[in-house]
């Protein structure tokens, strides 16, 4: 089987076979980042454009490194320094990039569906690097690769996703990825942060973290978006940390070899305690390393489509 898609917009539309294909490609690229010369010529002559309308350091850097390690040329567009401030529409910006003979466009945008709109109206391969509260597929694929690497497989694992599920594209992509790969997913958070219809995605909903953490193999902590604090989703950060923060006491209820994951950036002492972040169970930096490999695998597959 080969990867036939022009774009990667989200994991909701992807089959488990397609995800497995990306992960396998990523595994082949893990070795490249460990070399002295971290470069292979697979995308020589191709151009990758990073178009980020929201602040991002990790994801943009990760995409940039991935493209450069494949020998592609990379251009970074940021809205503050481009014609976007002059009133150009997203689609026109994309068409201009297309006219400059770019091949892959990596888009981060605050509106859900922005990547899909571009993909439909352009011959560029579009990679969604996060659109609103919708999806962040490459992050979820990195998480999947990390779980597979540490646990051997994803099927039948008990996974808890904890935090603000309502405003998390990482959570949404992870729910699609994990359930399709056969994991059992439970989501945990205060009622104000869990959409009523979330159970339709095939997860169980919990509000009591102490109960929900029992026996889990993987805990995926979401970042508490402190900038949303003003919206009264919870009374105080301290209360949130007490009820939904991951502490080493809480971790004792989980499976012995539990993996602690976090998409970053981490709010130490809020959703996750200091000693847990630095503890042996945390694989947060593996997630980052695997992010580069996943993006390399994805860009390679997209560029091989004929």
């Amino acid at each position: 089987m080969s990867f036939k898609r022009k774009d990667l917009l989200g994991l909701a539309a992807l089959s488990s076979e397609e995800m497995a294909l990306i992960l396998e490609a990523a595994e082949s690229f893990q070795e490249v980042s460990g070399r002295e010369i971290k470069k292979v010529p697979a995308l020589r002559g191709k151009t990758v454009v990073n178009l980020f309308f929201e602040p991002s350091t990790r994801t943009r850097t990760s995409f940039e490194l991935a493209a450069k390690r494949l020998s592609a040329d990379v251009v970074n567009f940021s809205p503050s320094s481009s014609s976007v401030v002059k009133g150009e529409t997203l689609l026109d910006t994309a068409r201009n990039i297309e006219s400059m003979q770019a091949d892959i466009l990596v888009l981060r945008h605050s509106s859900a569906g922005a990547a899909e709109t571009l993909a439909r109206n352009s011959r560029l391969s579009v990679i969604n690097a996060g659109d609103g509260w919708h999806e962040h597929p490459t992050q979820a694929l990195s998480d999947l690769l990390t779980i597979r690497e540490k646990k051997g497989q994803v099927r039948d694992l008990q996974v808890a996703i904890v935090g603000d599920l309502a405003h998390s594209r990482v959570a949404r992509s992870n729910i699609h990825a994990l359930t399709k790969m056969g994991a059992n997913v439970r989501v945990v958070g205060p009622p104000t942060m869990i959409p009523l219809s979330l159970h339709r995605l095939g997860v169980t909903v919990h509000h009591d973290f102490d109960k929900a953490i029992s026996g889990v193999d993987v805990v995926l902590m979401l970042r508490l978006q402190l900038e949303r604090q003003g919206r009264s989703l919870f009374p105080s950060i301290r209360e949130y940390a007490r009820l939904y923060g991951l502490t080493s006491e809480r971790m004792e209820r989980a499976a012995k070899d539990v993996l602690v994951m976090h998409p970053g950036p981490v709010n130490r002492g809020v959703e996750i305690a200091h000693d847990v972040v630095d503890g042996a169970s945390a694989v947060i930096l593996d997630q980052v390393a695997n992010g580069v490999a996943v993006r390399m695998g994805l860009m390679y597959l997209l560029s091989q489509r004929n």
């Binding site: 990867f3 396998e24 082949s28 070795e31 292979v40 010529p41 697979a42 560029s303 004929n306």
Partner: peptide, 23 residues
Amino acid sequence: LDITLYRDDLSIRKGQPVLKKTD
């Protein structure tokens, strides 16, 4: 050694060559 990434026909070839690991 997997040479897929170093092929000179990567961009003109039909179909995806299977990528394997270099070890």
